[in-house]
Amino acid sequence: MTTPQPVLSVEGIHSFYGRIEALKGISLHVDEGEIVTLIGANGAGKSTTINTISGLVTPKMGSVKLFGETISGLRVNIVASKGVVQVPEGRRIFSRMTVLENLEMGAYLRKDKAEFAGDIKRVFELFPRLAERRSQKGGTLSGGEQQMLAMGRALMAKPRLLMLDEPSMGLAPVVVDLIFETIERLNSEGMTILLIEQNAAKALTVANRGYVLEVGKVVLEGSGRELLTNERVRKAYLGEE
């Protein structure tokens, strides 16, 4: 058998917040070049899943593997150094640093300083807005610009797996469209992406595959198209009768 090794494979993870079991045995995988999305209601465990992958939460059981190497139990900065880069929920940019300084923090772990200028140019090309605001401090940016900055900062780390946690949260529809366009563009250039979204319709449209989470378990999985037409998904997440 010559199945290509998945970029990420999550096997039966159980994560707890104190005594509350937030994840009850989640398994999923992300293959090279895919966009995989996790959808589900608030409290379904989407963010906990991503936080467990990135090392913010340590699973009690199960494992997380990156290209076959176990990364569960490692600290956040170590996981980041292996190329799993998270754009956290609520963006969390460095609001008192300039746009440029934020982007430079994204490249904190990188040794290849020679490529800095090129990479920053690349981010500015992706988000021209950031180029205009390069010496403005992060906190003065609009919500959409902050999301762009958070994504740009993550890209500066040259991720092997980019994880986006609710990138469309609280943004104007026009900005949401732009963010999703960018996600598709990055993917078409070869970026592997794990996307968490409440906006299920949007997420399933851009995703190759998706998982539906309910109270800490995967209840459905399939291609984006399949899930979009699935009756249960349509009723629960797409607001259709």
């Binding site: 990135s54 956040v76 900065n77 980041a80 956290p88 460095f94 904190y108 900062r153 993550a154 780390a157």
Partner: peptide, 25 residues
């Protein structure tokens, strides 16, 4: 230095700094 930058990032937002690869501890 790198240390100085890591401190500045940590001072602003520990989670984001850790996500950038800063070892907070």
């Amino acid at each position: 230095s790198r240390l100085g930058r890591a401190w500045a990032a940590m001072r602003e937002n520990e989670v984001a700094a850790a996500a950038c690869g800063v070892n907070i501890r």
